[in-house]
Simulated assay, not measured.
Amino acid sequence: MIISTIAFYLFAAMTIASAFMVIAAKNPVHSVLYLILAFFNSAALFVLLGAEFLAMILVVVYVGAVAVLFLFVVMMLDINFAELRQGFLQYLPIGGLVGIILLIELILVVSGWTLSPEALKLAAGAGPAVSNVTNTEQLGAIIYTDYAFLFQTAGMILLVAMIGAIVLTLRHRPGVRKQSVASQTGRRPEDSMAVRKVEPGQGV
């Protein structure tokens, strides 16, 4: 029990510190690396809670795909960060005002949050019986039965977002050779081949 408590506070502290360094680091590559560290520590917290499937998904999907993709994109983009920082003071009052409004809203939400007596009784009562079904099987049964439509809707939203990101970041550069499928499929044999009569002793 003591070891799990120490591990929880250790991973929680590392997660908070990594999340702070994501927004505090000046180098965007370092920010992505800190984000990967935060994902790993969050996965460790899920393991301590007994949700090993969520921990595996967090590592495989977010660390193995999303964070690595962010890292490659940040390293490949030629961004002038000095130019981006020039307009920081210009938007500082608006950003500060929005931050203060969000802080006031969070304080109002937290201060007005109370526990109902029914929730306290349920927390003090006996928990549900532990079944022999694994977490992965339970999640799969719920996602693909009760929430199948919402699961497919989330997939469609991600597909539309991916296509939108590709369209927004697509750059048409002059002088770049590209494949034209229409011209390839519409090409005729007489346009590609020429029959020449070569006399003896002459080259083509």
Rank of each mutant, 00 (worst) to 15 (best):
Q152I: 14
A126G: 08
E118F: 05
A148P: 01
S116C: 02
G155I: 11
L122I: 11
F149S: 15
L150C: 04
T134I: 00
T145W: 02
L115G: 06
G140I: 03
G125H: 01
L122A: 10
A154R: 06
G112Q: 09
F151H: 15
I143K: 04
S116V: 07
K121R: 11
L120Q: 03
L120G: 03
A123S: 06
A141V: 04
F151G: 07
A141P: 04
N132Q: 08
E137K: 05
W113K: 15
L120N: 03
T136K: 11
L139C: 08
I143Y: 03
A148C: 03
A119Y: 07
V133N: 00
V110N: 08
G155L: 14
P128Y: 05
V110Q: 08
L139H: 11
L150E: 09
T153N: 04
I142N: 09
V110I: 15
L120R: 07
V133H: 00
Y144S: 13
I143E: 01
V109Y: 09
A126I: 06
F149N: 15
G127R: 07
V110G: 06
G112D: 10
L122R: 14
A129C: 01
A141S: 12
D146L: 14
S111Y: 10
I142P: 03
K121Q: 05
A141H: 08
V133S: 02
T114D: 11
A154S: 10
F149P: 03
G155S: 09
V133P: 00
A148H: 06
A148R: 13
T153F: 09
N135V: 14
W113L: 15
V110F: 12
Q152P: 03
E118V: 09
F149G: 12
I142R: 15
G155Q: 13
Y147L: 13
Q138S: 09
T153G: 06
V133G: 00
I142M: 12
L122Q: 10
L150Y: 13
N135I: 11
G155R: 15
V130M: 05
L122H: 07
A129T: 07
A126K: 14
V109A: 14
W113M: 15
T145C: 02
T114N: 15
A148Q: 08
G155D: 03
G125I: 01
G127F: 01
A154C: 04
K121G: 05
L139W: 12
L115N: 10
A129N: 04
L120V: 02
T114A: 12
L115Q: 13
L120T: 04
T145Q: 06
W113N: 13
G125M: 01
G155F: 08
T134S: 09
S111M: 11
V130I: 09
P128A: 10
S131V: 01
A148D: 02
A123W: 03
A123T: 06
T136F: 06
S131T: 11
W113E: 05
A129G: 04
L122C: 03
E118G: 07
G155M: 12
T134W: 00
G112P: 05
G112N: 14
T114I: 09
L139M: 14
E137I: 02
G125Y: 00
G112H: 11
A141D: 06
Y147D: 06
A124C: 04
V133A: 01
T114F: 13
E118S: 10
A141Q: 10
I142F: 13
V110E: 07
